[in-house]
Design a binder for these strands. Structure first.
Lengths: 207, 207
DNA sequence: GCGCGAATCCCCGAAATCGGGGACTGACAA
DNA sequence: TTGTCAGTCCCCGATTTCGGGGATTCGCGC
């Protein structure tokens, strides 16, 4: 069973290179190669591949936007980013948009082919520096979550309801306490989390 | 140069098995094996390894808590979770606590050894189902972020400042507009995001 | 037993936010 | 040209929140 693949890459040299790599693999078939996001979207609507190799830096529409668009018209396509960018912001935006993997362009051909084969087996191929960036993201989340550890169980409940948009009166009703008590809790929460008000506390909480 | 490793695993059989795997590798040296988090913390204070293989299910203190404690007393130790649990909640908690990698127990010996060797090269080894879980987490984040796409640039600015805890007046000063205008933006933001108030909008924004 | 923190409830006046309107400009598209 | 939409500003009264106090109970640990 051949895996059908499409390449989206504006640099002619790199596109040819990727085509060559895929051409050598007997179990992978390239059914399209486009130099822009717009072309890719049109092409993929006609011939939908199982997988897409996507560059981020594209003329006009970015690769990340393209991922979001492709996921709308063909949710089943698996998209692997292949790019030189290693900044966290782009990685997260690409993954949020729906990409299933993220490789740096310097990856050896074997790694790219392995990635293509592995996604259908449930993998999410990522180059080592990318994986590290993602883990570090969680570490920083943990650091800010540490302040929340000092919150009591009741305070956690209040904070949770607060972030759902309830006002003190409603929170009081749900916890069977007075709204004034809720307010006391909120005061303590703000002190403990070193924030100016409930809005910032909620922001920190959900970060 | 030998890598120094410590094992924390309460199951005698599995601990012996891991010891055997590491014993066979010439470039890795096990300097301790503990059956509980408490023992591990005491032992690691005396003999600090470069890396720790950590089980999650431990008697009394959990492996995740142990990670947090170890990171406090020896921030430089790299910790790889080795566990049967594959639920997102535990994965995220472990990573937030400071773990650098996450392997399932069914991983072959070669993968475990490769993981130990790769962390010092900047990798964050993760079993394939774990990586996929993490990517899916980002996908779900993206779905909720989709509502935010309809927000205009100005509205984004306001939302950003709002989540930093500023009040309308302060936001107005920073953007050189009236606080009343800020309020108009907030009204529109709340409508577009289908939320009841600015607090919920901020919560959704940072989720 | 005593202190301490968590949890509860209360009060005041001031400040901020909300709901629900209206109105003007400028840009860009149909 | 005529919408439409983002962005700006304004008003009213009602509601909610804030700041800064105080007070009680209850359980836990020293």
């Amino acid at each position: 069973m051949n895996k059908t693949v499409v390449i989206v890459e504006d640099d002619d040299g790199l596109r040819e290179q990727l085509l060559k790599i895929i051409g050598k693999a007997p179990d992978v078939k390239c059914i399209g190669a486009y130099a822009s996001a717009e072309e890719a979207i049109r092409g993929i609507q006609k011939a939908t591949p199982e997988l897409v190799l996507m560059d981020i830096k594209l003329p006009c529409m970015s690769g990340i936007q393209c991922v979001a668009e492709l996921k709308k018209i063909a949710p089943a396509v698996q998209i692997i980013m292949v790019t030189v960018y290693e900044d966290s912001e782009r990685i997260f935006r690409a993954l949020k948009a729906g990409a299933i993997g993220y490789l740096v362009k310097s990856s050896p051909p074997s790694e790219i082919l392995a990635a293509i084969r592995d996604v259908s087996k449930g993998a999410s191929p990522m180059s080592t520096p990318i994986a590290r960036k993602i883990v570090q993201h969680f570490h920083s989340l943990g650091a800010s979550a540490q302040q929340e550890e000092t919150l009591s169980a009741r305070e956690h409940e209040v904070l949770e309801l607060l972030s759902k948009g309830f006002i003190y009166k409603e929170i009081g009703e749900q916890l069977n306490i007075e709204s004034e008590t809720v307010r006391s809790h909120v005061k303590n929460i703000c002190q403990k989390m070193h924030v100016r008000g409930r809005v910032e506390a909620v922001a920190k909480h959900n970060r």
